[in-house]
């Protein structure tokens, strides 16, 4: 992926952008055009962040709880953070990252490939398959763990690597959902890339694989990144299937570990739990920061025009 995205030259045009005002913008106009946006941003961020500050405060308090620890940051101590590592938190974090990274890459590749087929080819069963993909998502997964567990133990004698208590096994289960709602997001986006581009390339002698890799994929980078990010986040936070598949605590993901702490009815270590939740959120925040430039690259509009 990295190589393909770098091939394409980037246009600096951004959708909805206007020529920058060369003269200093007056304050009144700034308020009207931009100031309110900052106001909206600040208000929403307060709404977003308050619960998280609350968790952060609880995580810094050795006797932190989730109910009634209302004097935010009254005690500041790193004790909870220090204690995390002896509980296997490092292993969980590594497992989570492995599972989420592999799953999201697999999801992006398979989803994009499927979207390409749906968007560029007309074949028998196409509509049916598309509708089917949507309907599969509607199935209540209440009993999914029972079925998945049964499936995995039956695979044990055949493909031990895809059985229970194995990260590849869990990743494979997650990839079962690769074609789903993501395909639609990609599909809609693929449709906005003009077919004339493919046609031109085809006339120039490009194969369907070349069109896919060198023409379409670079143009749809924003949505690929969005799908990758969404897949990463949802995989990262999933625990119901994960705790069925992964049995030994050294193989757990962060979400299972946190869930296990919280499920202790009597002595739930809420301080640890809060510290773990704070640390667990960091990769997502970093990833979002890092990937933004790909999401909002404005490549499409530039390319379409060209």
């Amino acid at each position: 992926m990295a190589t393909t995205t770098s091939v394409e030259p980037r246009s600096s045009a951004v959708p909805g952008s206007r020529p920058r005002a060369s003269a200093p913008v007056r304050f009144g106009r700034w308020c009207k055009e931009l100031g309110w946006r900052h106001l909206v941003g600040v208000v929403t961020i307060v709404f977003c962040v308050l619960p998280l500050l609350y968790v952060l405060s609880a995580s810094l308090n050795p006797s932190g709880t989730l109910t009634g620890s209302n004097d935010l940051f009254s005690t500041i101590s790193g004790a909870n953070y220090g204690a995390l590592w002896s509980k296997g938190f490092g292993d969980w974090a590594r497992n989570s990252i492995i599972v989420a990274v592999v799953t999201s890459i697999g999801t992006v590749l398979m989803g994009a490939a499927a979207a390409y087929a749906f968007s560029r080819y007309r074949f028998r069963g196409r509509r049916g398959t598309l509708t089917g993909l949507l309907l599969v998502q509607m199935f209540p997964q209440l009993l999914a763990v029972v079925a998945i567990f049964l499936l995995l133990i039956n695979l044990k004698d055949v493909f031990p690597l895809l059985s229970t208590n194995s990260l590849p096994g869990l990743i494979a289960v997650y990839l079962g959902g690769a074609l789903g709602v993501n395909t639609f997001l990609l599909y809609g986006f693929f449709n906005t890339v003009p077919r004339e581009l493919d046609e031109a390339a085809r006339i120039d002698g490009a194969t369907h694989a070349q069109i896919f890799w060198t023409i379409i994929m670079p143009l749809v980078t924003p949505i690929l990144v969005v799908v990758g990010l969404l897949s990463f986040i949802s995989t990262y936070g999933e625990f119901i299937i994960a705790k069925t598949v992964l049995t030994s605590s050294s193989k757990w993901t962060l979400a299972i570990g946190l869930y296990t702490w919280a499920s202790d009815e009597r002595n739930a270590p809420w301080g640890l739990f809060a510290a773990g939740a704070v640390l667990a959120a960091i990769p997502i925040v970093l990833l979002t920061l890092f990937l933004q430039k790909y999401i909002v690259s404005g490549l499409v509009s530039g390319a379409v025009k060209g």
Binding site: F149, I153, K156, T164, K243, S249, Y259, S263
Partner: peptide, 21 residues
């Protein structure tokens, strides 16, 4: 020794025991 969340240990046992696993 396998650690199971206290909220799930019994239900998981009842689910998994018949499979022989």
């Amino acid at each position: 020794v396998v650690q199971k969340p206290s909220g799930d240990i019994r239900a998981d046992f009842v689910k998994q025991e018949p499979t022989g696993q």
